[in-house]
């Protein structure tokens, strides 16, 4: 299954509290993703919390967009990516 980097912009900043509520929000996203065979691997968040870079495994870019719509998450850009490990070259 292809792996994608998804860039998102949150003009108001992304707020996920470290509480049961925050965990619930993440689990909801994970569950919605699962309906379309999409897996959220993990994300990087910019310091100002305006931008996120999410690593996803998904069957197609359309599946990524479909679940984003249901999760009410913005999508700026989807890029297909592969792992490069710098230490592998040692």
């Amino acid at each position: 299954m292809p792996r994608y980097l998804i860039e998102r912009t949150f003009p108001e900043g992304l707020q996920i509290p470290m509480t049961a509520e925050g965990a619930g929000a993440c689990l909801n996203v994970v569950e919605t993703n699962a309906e379309d065979g999409v897996t959220w691997v993990h994300s990087y968040v910019s310091d100002d919390k305006d931008k996120t870079f999410c690593i996803y495994d998904a069957p197609s870019p359309e599946a990524v967009r479909r679940v984003a719509r249901r999760n009410k998450l913005p999508v700026d850009r989807i890029t297909e990516v592969r792992v490069l490990d710098p230490y592998f070259y040692h």
Partner: peptide, 13 residues
């Protein structure tokens, strides 16, 4: 159609 949608969205594949 699917290819053209991806082109216009700037999506991969």
């Amino acid at each position: 159609v699917l290819g053209h949608v991806r082109v216009r969205r700037g999506d991969p594949a």
